[in-house]
Design a protein around this nucleic acid. Structure first.
Lengths: 200, 200
DNA sequence: TGGTTTACTTGACAATGTGTCAATTGACGC
DNA sequence: GCGTCAATTGACACATTGTCAAGTAAACCA
């Protein structure tokens, strides 16, 4: 899939993912990655033009390894909007902890690097598509609470599921993934789902 | 209130608040603040030991100016939990845009500076207290939805109201403050509020 | 065998921003 | 005039990213 797959390049990506995971995405420098990979700092620059490019590549690399599409399949095959919403939250909840290190590094890099901001934005837009699909499924079931438009509900669900919220609930509040799924699902259902309109 | 109120110190704080506001909390350097204040960079260090210390002082300075306590008074005087929740969300929603620049700078500084992280954490704990009070008001009205414990509901409401969510909804999704208030209130009520238990 | 290519190393260096230090200036009070 | 205090000036340490040029070593190839 990747255009250029040297063994060294792959080793760098493996190290990067591992170290970001270990350090929660903070304080991992180019020199650290090089040393841990067993090469010189400059060798890293032979494969990746900048730190941001490395982070973006690591994101893609991890996504391939985790097979995001497969994970989302159950949600796409749901037979009702409510089920689709619940399954989407569940896959997402299992996905975040696995990408958290890399994601956090990219989020932090946004402050100083335009390209990192764009890359993360892209990812989040993809996630938003999943949210919209779930909301639209509710809508066509007639179970989207009447106050919401699909646009507003999509915005709101998307925001709810953002990484900083997961971070706050798990890291600061000490919720487990199981609790996160349980309460996020409850909150989303209570917020967005109503019984279908009986006049239909 | 402040221990040490030189005129220059105040001028620095004014400049800092203004510049952070103007630039959304990003990319404002010590030298920029000094130049805009009309003093040398080193003069800033005569009043504030570090960038973080300046940011923290600016936060406090702004809080005094905005009179946070007065803003929260209506919420504290609410006669029902539901009203308290709505009024708290409303004051908070009017407050965030005014502190956003400084808040964002502090949030960004967290990555590299322990002290900035602690300062922001502190602020967010105070905000959490407001959330707990609102949730407890619901609880004692008997209108807190039965699935929630006060602890879990407080965590959830607190997370909902975090700055990154406001940022996403207003900046990325283009919501106005009015829309933010409207939909946050609806989401919070649907999530946390039930009719009181008729067996009471 | 010898030459070329390729990946990598080594060490130096620019740029950027924070924070420190020491010497100096200038005003104000006494 | 003298001391004090606030501020200035300019140099510097430090960390990190990114660049550059010269050198090495193995693999490939004729």
């Amino acid at each position: 899939m990747s255009s250029d797959n040297t063994e060294t390049r792959t080793k760098i990506l493996d190290t990067t993912v591992r170290m970001l995971e270990e350090h929660g995405g903070r304080g991992v420098r180019m020199g650290d990655i090089a040393r841990a990979t067993g090469i010189s700092r400059q060798a890293v620059y032979l494969h990746f033009a900048s730190r941001t490019e490395l982070l973006v590549a690591a994101t893609r690399y991890l996504d391939e390894k985790l097979d995001v599409d497969r994970r989302l399949a159950p949600s796409r095959e749901a037979t009702s909007g409510v089920e689709r919403l619940a399954l989407y939250i569940e896959s997402w909840a299992h996905y975040i902890p696995e990408i958290y290190g890399v994601a956090k590094a990219l989020i932090l890099a946004q402050d100083t690097d335009e390209a990192a901001a764009a890359a993360w934005d892209d990812r989040m837009q993809a996630m938003r598509d999943g949210c919209r699909a779930a909301i639209e499924a509710l809508h066509s079931d007639g179970t989207l609470a009447s106050q919401w438009t699909t646009k507003k509900a999509t915005d709101a669900l998307w925001t709810m599921l953002l990484v900083p919220n997961w971070e706050n609930l798990t890291v600061k509040c000490g919720w487990s993934t199981r609790q996160y799924i349980r309460w996020m699902t409850i909150a989303a259902q209570r917020t967005f789902v109503d019984a279908p309109d009986p006049t239909d």
